[in-house]
Design a protein around this nucleic acid. Structure first.
Length: 141
DNA sequence: CTTCTTACA
DNA sequence: TGTAAGAA
């Protein structure tokens, strides 16, 4: 099948499929005219790549993991999962520590801070300088 | 109409 | 990742 069909079947964009090939995650054959030719098995392959990506593995790691999936290298995969889990748990501890630190700063403030009366209305305290453009960032800039 | 590559946002 | 452009 050509790239468009695989994209429809897998729910992955044509752009992404070409990118996966560029990253060495997929190795489709080529027709005489240069078009990528995928096999039926590539559908499952793509879904697996998506699952690995969703779990946080970068393409270079996935590249090394895919062959293990094909030739039953279960131990290699298990260790990769364990490493990823350990890394995430370390990060979680750091996040919990920051959350605790924030709670401490909040308790340190006077009881009524957070809202001040201006012209009879409630208004949130301004904090232009300390606000991160994206609250998902790990550090405020 | 679909795909390819290359390049840019 | 999406989209544009020009060619096949």
């Amino acid at each position: 099948m050509r790239i468009g069909e695989l994209a429809t079947l897998s729910g992955v964009s044509v752009r992404a499929l070409r990118y996966y090939e560029e990253q060495g995650l997929l190795a489709p054959a080529r027709s005489a005219s240069g078009q990528r030719i995928f096999g039926e098995g590539d559908r499952a392959e793509v879904l697996r790549i998506r699952a690995l990506l969703a779990a946080g593995f970068c393409s270079s790691v996935i590249r090394g993991l895919l062959p293990a999936y094909r030739d039953g290298g279960t131990e290699r995969i298990r260790s990769a999962i364990a490493a990823a889990r350990a890394r995430l748990e370390t990060e979680r501890r750091a996040i919990d520590a920051e959350l605790d630190a924030l709670a401490g700063l909040e308790r340190e403030l006077a009881p009524d801070v957070g809202v001040r009366v201006h012209a009879g209305r409630h208004a949130a305290i301004e904090c232009s300088e300390a606000v991160a453009p994206d609250h998902r960032d790990r550090r405020l800039r």
